[in-house]
Design a protein around this nucleic acid. Structure first.
Length: 669
RNA sequence: GCUCCCGUAGCUCAGUUGGAUAGAGCGUUCGCCUCCUAAGCGAAAGGCCGCGCGUUCGAAUCGCGCCGGGAGCACCA
């Protein structure tokens, strides 16, 4: 019986006893982790609630402590429970059988099951993340999005779900038109010139997306003075949307190169995708037309015949009230007949949920080192590649998008739910998060001129248009260089290859943890010192703790690894836990065993930070444990074996927790 | 004007089903490498949990009202 099952049994026992003893029907029972190990392993403040309910039902006043006493005897019957105490005003504190629990945990399958089922009949969910416009390099804000999404995927998989990962490519938007304008009108380049430029950049060890980053910023500046250039925008945009012309071909090359760069950047962070759906196919395969028909059929969209929205198709949103300045209704089709972003997104969402009745065609885009494939959509049925997995048809769709897009996301969710009431709003989840902004000093550190007004602000928003931001690859390079210097200092004997690999693992660990330790709705004000830190509450701290644990096992003698903790016997183990420092050892074991419930909690709350915090606390507890107990050199043989078993449980679960956060553990560091 | 988010230690943040003495990291001060990796460990100092009222046996957490900060409410994406 694992910890989750045990806790469930305890809850059921409480509910059953409340029913039989007090005739009260409890729907849920709150359980908590006691603040101190001396107060037990699980606590139920349920007696207070029961006292209230009894008073409501019979008018009799009852004492919570007495209620708790009666619950106590029922819970004590559960096998894994050692004893139960009534404490304080009426807390029910449960103490587990430590020796039995340790044996059980030592033999348990590695938790969590990090490889989700590939059984095609099991329900699948979709996580869409990254959303970098394919016209420039990714910055740290995009990495927050992707790391959040990727970690959430790992959490879902750990809790047994099948997950499809998508990165939506907005290849027909104005951002793409802007950078195309840069190439064509600022640089006077043809497609052949751009291809040549790409070759040159590769030779110089530079990247195409970084080049576009600067070019895009230059276009933004040029627009401010050059009205003619700005006028070209609509024209170029139209050509790109239409397709089958030289401008569209040039745009496609630029987009594809940028996507390749962005996918490569994300791969450095341990992030991979299954499918890249493109907006051009949403248009060319008439996804919108189909969605529009459904909307008209179900009467969720109406044509405005008068007022300022005359000629537009709009969706009424009743949760928002309008006024003179702002309409409450959301426009999905403009008066000139073109579809807004929200309209296209609604059609795409319908496809993701298997509600559209249309499908894309697919081409192979890229194969990762481990053989995993990324697919990209195409409008051309004839050119479709063989061996395409089944995409779409997801039970639930998670969209990782920043909180500024809450309103359009709400429109998409409500729209889909109105057309398909049987699916409901719960099928569309907006995994929203706050942006990564720059502190004024960080912006200055990047070499930007800061206006007096901005200096007064607590943070400055990053802007691709202005070229203001910390590029993902730049930051990772800097972290790797810092980590490499530390590795050189500590482990000069390692080969250059091993040093570089270690530095990379450390750098990724530092950055992923930095982005995950904040809860989703906290604005991260980027600070170089904090992001580059390898000490304190960092991913590196967690990795270090795991490396230390592993080094114990590397140094253990052969007989130790063959030893099974159950050979020691329950009594001997219990003796160790009952000794003076027994609580200390036990608290390490029980904390490590809480990984599975933490993953469930993080999955239910859609909050990876819960797992990040737990992982840090586990690492911290292990560092203390490591400091207080000499494991290899312990003279009491029984205690030594218990310490080994607890350390082994901890390192296994610490490694699994880190894996779930997308953080690897190096051999040495 | 309307909607949403935030306000907790000097700084940056956890504290999400209401529970026991409100936590962590950084920074400051002071200790700990003859011993499984000091990217570590320990100790000290540091709090009207924005303010007020309410609900409750019990409120940082729930409700209402203020104050302060942010985002959104485009025929942009």
């Amino acid at each position: 019986m694992n910890l989750l099952q045990l806790q469930e049994n305890l809850r059921e026992a409480v509910i059953a006893t409340a029913r039989s003893e007090f005739n009260v029907e409890l729907e849920t029972v709150a359980s908590e982790v006691p603040p101190k190990i001396e107060l037990g392993d699980a606590a139920f403040p349920v007696a207070f609630e029961l006292a209230k309910r009894i008073k409501q039902q019979s008018g009799e006043k009852s004492n919570p402590r007495q209620i708790a006493e009666r619950l106590k005897s029922a819970i004590e019957k559960i096998e894994a429970v050692e004893r139960v105490e009534v404490a304080g005003a009426g807390y029910l504190n449960v103490f587990f059988n430590r020796a039995a629990f340790l044996i059980e945990s030592a033999n348990a399958a590695p938790l969590p099951k990090l490889n989700a089922s590939d059984d095609e009949s099991s329900p699948k969910v979709c996580v869409e993340h990254t959303s970098v416009n394919p016209n420039k390099a990714a910055h740290i804000g995009h990495v927050r999005n992707a790391v959040l999404g990727d970690t959430f995927i790992r959490i879902l998989r750990a809790s047994g779900k099948r997950v499809e990962v998508q990165y939506y490519i907005d290849n027909t938007g104005v951002q793409v038109a802007d950078v195309v304008i840069g190439f064509v009108y600022l640089e006077n380049m043809s497609l052949a010139d751009i291809k040549e430029l790409n070759e040159k950049l590769i030779r110089e060890n530079k990247t195409f997306d970084f080049y576009c980053w600067d070019l895009y910023a230059r276009v933004g500046q040029a627009y401010q003075t050059d009205e003619n250039l700005k006028a070209k925008r609509g024209e170029v945009l139209h050509l790109i949307e239409e397709g089958n012309n030289p401008t569209a071909e040039l745009a496609d090359y630029v987009v594809t190169r940028n996507v390749e760069c962005i996918v490569a950047t994300m791969e450095r962070f341990g992030i991979s995708y299954d499918l890249l759906p493109r907006e051009s196919e949403i248009l060319h395969l008439h996804f919108w037309t189909r969605a529009f028909e459904e909307m008209q059929r179900r009467d969720v969209i109406k044509l405005e015949t008068s007022g300022k929205n005359a000629g537009c198709w709009v969706m009424p949103i009743d949760s928002h009230s309008g006024n003179d300045e702002h309409e409450a209704d959301k426009i999905l089709v403009r008066s000139n007949g073109t579809v807004t972003y929200t309209g296209k997104d609604t059609a795409y969402q319908m496809w993701k949920l298997g509600l559209l009745g249309l499908d894309f065609y697919y081409n192979l885009f890229h194969t990762y080192g481990d053989g995993k494939k990324i697919w990209i959509t195409t409008a051309d049925a004839i050119q479709q590649d063989a061996g395409v997995p089944k995409f779409g048809n997801n039970e639930t769709v998670y969209n990782v998008i920043d909180s500024r897009q809450s309103y359009p996301q709400e429109v998409v969710k409500k729209g889909v739910a109105t057309i398909f009431p049987e699916k409901g709003e719960a099928a569309s989840v907006h995994l929203s998060y706050e942006m990564v902004a720059l502190s004024p000093s960080a912006a200055q550190e990047l070499g930007f001129e800061i206006s007096e007004e901005d200096k007064q602000k607590s943070f400055i928003e990053m802007s691709g248009r202005k070229g203001l931001g910390v590029k993902a690859d730049d930051l990772l390079n800097r972290l790797e260089a810092n980590a490499l210097a530390e590795v050189e200092k500590r482990h000069a004997d390692l080969s250059d290859e091993e040093k570089r690999k270690t530095a990379h693992i450390i750098a990724v660990g530092a950055l992923r943890y930095f982005l995950l330790k904040f809860t989703r709705n906290t604005v991260i004000i980027f600070d170089f010192k904090e992001a580059l830190s390898f000490e304190g509450e960092t991913g590196v701290f967690c990795q270090y703790s795991a490396v230390r644990a592993n080094s114990i096992f590397r140094k253990l003698n052969e007989p130790d690894s063959a030893f099974k903790i159950q050979d020691l016997g329950l009594e001997k183990i219990a003796e160790i836990f009952n000794a003076e420092d027994g609580n200390d050892i036990w608290s390490m074991a029980i904390l490590a065993a809480r990984l599975e419930e933490t993953i469930v909690q993080a999955a239910n709350a859609n909050e990876p930070a819960i797992l990040a915090k737990y992982t840090f606390n586990l690492a911290k507890a292990f560092n203390l444990f490591y400091h207080n107990h000499k494991i290899i050199h312990e003279e009491n043989e029984a205690k030594r074996q218990v310490l080994i078993a607890v350390a082994d449980l901890t390192r296994r679960n610490l490694t699994a927790a880190l894996d779930c956060l997308g953080i690897e553990v190096p051999e040495r560091m």
